[in-house]
Simulated assay, not measured.
Amino acid sequence: MNTTHSKRRFRNFTIGVSLGAALLAAGTGITGNSSTAYAATSTTPANSVSSSIADKIIATGLKYQGVRYEYGAESGITSSFDCSSFTQFVFEHNEISLPRSSKQQSTVGTYVSRNELQPGDLVFFYSPVHHVAIYMGDGKILHTYGDDGVTITPLNTGWWASHYTSARRVLPTNGQAASDSGSASASPDPATPASSDVSSQEQTIGDAWDWLNNFE
């Protein structure tokens, strides 16, 4: 009788120890998962651009508002700009190197969708790319073209809205450089139409083509 009772107590004790260990392990797993989830929700978005650098980029560009447009303007001069020499100069002044042409600039940094534009992003127009501008925020771009020279233009109306092509981010994000000496890694651009679609999407461009040919 005593032997049977002892065996039963030993078996219950063994089961209790095993159950306790299982519950402890489960509790640890739950705690770990909860902490991980909380950490993930508190992380700053990876595509958050450094606002201080963007502000400096835009402030530099605004200093040259009204400077005349000249197709093929020499890199580094400030008496005249074309679209890409302007962006190249403004970014270079803030220690971010870009290649010379708008087409080349459209391949650096990382792709940004239109609804995720942030100040300091490069915005490109027409396909193939013929023009580049700097997104300022609030639906405005800073660029140079035609008689206006360096100027501010609404992005979401008129010709610019209908001929928007894509955007790239070359400014640092969360302290990490998105561009290094103009050789940032290019990423696929889902907004760029396939060559077979270009003709159907751009059947007519009206009088805009006359001056668009002067963009580089």
Rank of each mutant, 00 (worst) to 15 (best):
T41S: 14
P188G: 08
R169D: 04
F10T: 04
T144S: 12
F215C: 11
E74C: 06
A177F: 04
S185K: 15
T78A: 11
I57C: 01
G182C: 04
S106H: 07
K103T: 07
A186I: 01
D210V: 11
P99Q: 07
L212E: 08
L24C: 13
S106V: 02
R168S: 06
V132Y: 06
S97H: 12
T107F: 12
T144E: 08
G139V: 09
S113K: 06
F86N: 07
S85Y: 00
V17Y: 02
L171F: 00
S48I: 05
G72V: 00
N94M: 10
N115Y: 00
I205C: 12
S183N: 15
A25F: 13
S187I: 02
S50D: 15
S181R: 14
F124Q: 04
N156D: 14
V67Y: 03
F124W: 01
S196Q: 08
S185F: 06
R9W: 03
Q203A: 13
Q65K: 15
Q176P: 05
N214W: 10
E70Y: 07
Y69E: 04
D55C: 05
G139P: 09
D121V: 05
S52F: 12
L142H: 00
P188L: 12
Q88W: 08
D147C: 10
Y69I: 02
S18Y: 03
P188S: 07
K103F: 00
S106D: 04
S52C: 06
Q88M: 09
I134W: 03
I205L: 14
V90W: 08
T107P: 02
A73L: 12
F81P: 14
A133Y: 05
N47R: 06
A73C: 08
E74W: 08
S34D: 03
N213I: 15
L171T: 00
G158Q: 00
P154C: 02
I96M: 08
S6Y: 02
G109H: 01
K63T: 00
S196P: 13
A39D: 14
D180N: 13
N12R: 12
V49W: 10
S199A: 14
W159A: 12
S50I: 02
D180P: 02
D207F: 15
T107H: 09
L62M: 09
S34M: 10
A39Y: 07
G16Q: 07
S18L: 15
A37H: 11
I57H: 07
N12P: 01
D55K: 12
S75I: 10
A46D: 14
S166Q: 09
I141K: 03
